[in-house]
Design a protein around this nucleic acid. Structure first.
Lengths: 166, 166
DNA sequence: TAATTCCTGAGTAATTTAGTAGGATATTGC
DNA sequence: GCAATATCCTACTAAATTACTCAGGAATTA
């Protein structure tokens, strides 16, 4: 388990997708502008997210990215491990000086901690952040501030339809 | 919250200290040899751990480092934040384009996640890894393999005294 | 056909990680 | 006091990662 700014970018971008999930795909240009990350860097991140089957790309005008699964079924741990590719867990097997020595003992203890951490993050879904009252309305306001008018309009329409249905 | 190899080094080194807590200070040269980290790099890490009041240095022959508090009172979160100094949490306030916009929304959601993560790690103590049956005996064996004979002997003595007392 | 958007790869600057070097300071045991 | 041990401290360097730039190709819409 590893956690850097890259992981944060991945998670916040996925949160953005999740918020607009019902309002169609979100373009990387939008996310780039809103979150202040360069477009090409985002493309690299999303290449990983796509390979991990977390998102789907839709080409052409009106395209963008959307979640490949409902936000309820996407957890934080898989986002982070998709983006923040795991570094060499240890130098254990590579060097010969670790055959049941102290390095292995603390390494095992670390692995245990690492697994606990993973399970913890695997228990948190995107939906837990996004599906709560008021957050979609808030997102519409924010989108307008950021000049994401199309996204804001689409989302507002969806909200209105939902209200009518209920 | 951030978590890189630096954090792992910090935590595993602290685990090593915790295991030998009753057997006097542990030298960085020992840790360096056992865990395969360079001495000077460890010195830099321990400089941070010392400033965070997590360890105490003992100079001179027979010296080394020891925990400044019992392992029950040291949690993983504080070790990681001592070593893996927190990077710019966001670019929010620095740029002017984030005044209640989408960036701030996902930023807030990220901060919430980050705090949950911190609390989780703050709830795990060093002692939970070290104070369990058999681990000290195992450490003595491992120390012998690694040529830490002095440490192994001291620890064996402590264990024997504890057995007599009980 | 033109515009839009994903998708890919190659290259680069900035930052962080990890290590090196050289020394100063405190402590122990002779 | 002296030599050995070990923490402490600063500055420098090499390697890796992060973040970005550039240049183009492929699919889709209007």
């Amino acid at each position: 388990m590893r956690l850097s700014t890259k992981g944060r970018y991945g998670v916040t971008a996925m949160m953005d997708l999740a918020i607009h999930d019902n309002a169609g795909p979100v373009t990387l240009a939008d996310i780039s502008q809103c979150q202040g990350i360069s477009l090409s860097y985002l493309e690299q991140l999303f290449s990983k997210l796509r390979k991990a089957k977390l998102v789907e790309g839709v080409r052409g005008p009106g395209g963008g990215y959307r979640l490949s699964r409902p936000a309820e079924d996407i957890n934080i741990a898989e986002i982070i491990s998709a983006v923040d590719e795991k570094v060499d867990v240890t130098r254990c097997n590579k060097e010969g000086n670790c055959q049941g020595g102290m390095q292995c003992l603390t390494h095992d203890l670390w692995m245990e901690l690492s697994e606990r951490l993973y399970s913890f993050l695997a228990g948190i879904t995107l939906a837990q952040f996004v599906n709560r009252p008021g957050i979609h309305e808030l997102a519409i306001q924010r989108d307008k501030i950021n000049g994401r008018f199309i996204l804001a309009r689409r989302q507002a329409e969806v909200l209105q339809q939902q209200r009518k249905a209920s």
